[in-house]
Amino acid sequence: MEKIPQSLDDKILRYLDGELNTAEGLAFEEELNQNDSLKKRLDQLQDIHLTMRGKMIEHPSKNFTQAVMRKLDQYPVQARSFSIRNGILLLSGVLVAVGIASILVSAGVFDNLNTTIDLNQVELPKKYFERSLPSIPFSGKVIVNIIIILNLGLAWLVLDRAILKPLFQRRLQGDH
């Protein structure tokens, strides 16, 4: 069977859905009479159309409703990816890391970690860079401070999502 172009597939579907006007419908039926491949393709799509139409509804088990009603108070349904206990552990870990980093910063451990990254030292093809490239100052103290700030943000997120929110949800359910 020769391959049916997509435009004809489109036309068959429009024909099956009753979207062709009278003139288009008649012209298409005429085309069907002259083209066996088109007729076969129509039969295929029509078979699917008839089998699928209105017969796809499926029914759950008889005790479906009772099961739902029985479980209504068990919420949240999905196990949380993070229990409150794990949230507290993660929060403690993040805070300890922030604390240690802060102590090291205030003790001046990172003060000497100052350098500049000279981009001219990077071996790049000269033809792309005619001018000299800038040097980027690198301060260990600034980097560690940024990491501390990011960790504080993470700690706040963990506190909110993994501890406070589930705690209030549980309390609300308790009230019901």
């Binding site: 796809m56 509804i57 499926e58 029914h59 759950p60 479906f64 409703t65 739902v68 009603m69 209504l72």
Partner: peptide, 21 residues
């Protein structure tokens, strides 16, 4: 709460069909 069963009864077949597909 018990009234919710009416909604479950009405929509359970379609809901199940979607999940099954």
């Amino acid at each position: 709460q018990a009234v919710y069963a009416e909604l479950v009864n009405k929509y359970k077949s379609y809901a199940f069909t979607i999940a099954h597909k």
